[in-house]
């Protein structure tokens, strides 16, 4: 069974035409992979569908803008994968 990170990396590779082998758990979606906010909507759409969740992008963006969180917390892929796991767990609770 593939991990959450593997599924996310595959979605990013396919959606943004980024070579899969360049995407690692340490990759920052924005700073390392060059994904902009519009492209990230396609990724969010695919993640929402694949995991049956709704990534709280507005809340995350607000927290970053307010200085309450860093982009690394949400957009480094290992952290993004952990947030997805939390959302999936919360849905099933």
């Amino acid at each position: 069974m593939s991990t959450t990170f593997d599924q996310v990396a595959n979605i990013i590779a396919e959606t943004c035409d980024i070579p899969r082998d360049t995407i690692t758990p340490e990759s920052h979606a924005i700073d390392d992979l060059g994904i902009d906010s519009l492209d990230f909507l396609d990724i969010a759409f695919a993640i929402d569908k694949a995991f049956g969740i709704k990534l709280p992008l507005e809340k995350w963006t607000q927290e970053v803008n307010d200085g309450k969180a860093t982009t690394e917390q949400y957009f480094v892929l290992k952290n993004l994968s952990a947030r997805i796991d939390e959302l999936v767990a919360a849905k099933g609770a």
Binding site: L41, A44, F45, D48, K49, K54, L55, P56, L57, E58, K59, T61
Partner: peptide, 9 residues
């Protein structure tokens, strides 16, 4: 098609 957080398709 989809209603996400702050976006929709």
């Amino acid at each position: 098609l989809h209603e996400g957080s702050g976006y929709a398709m």
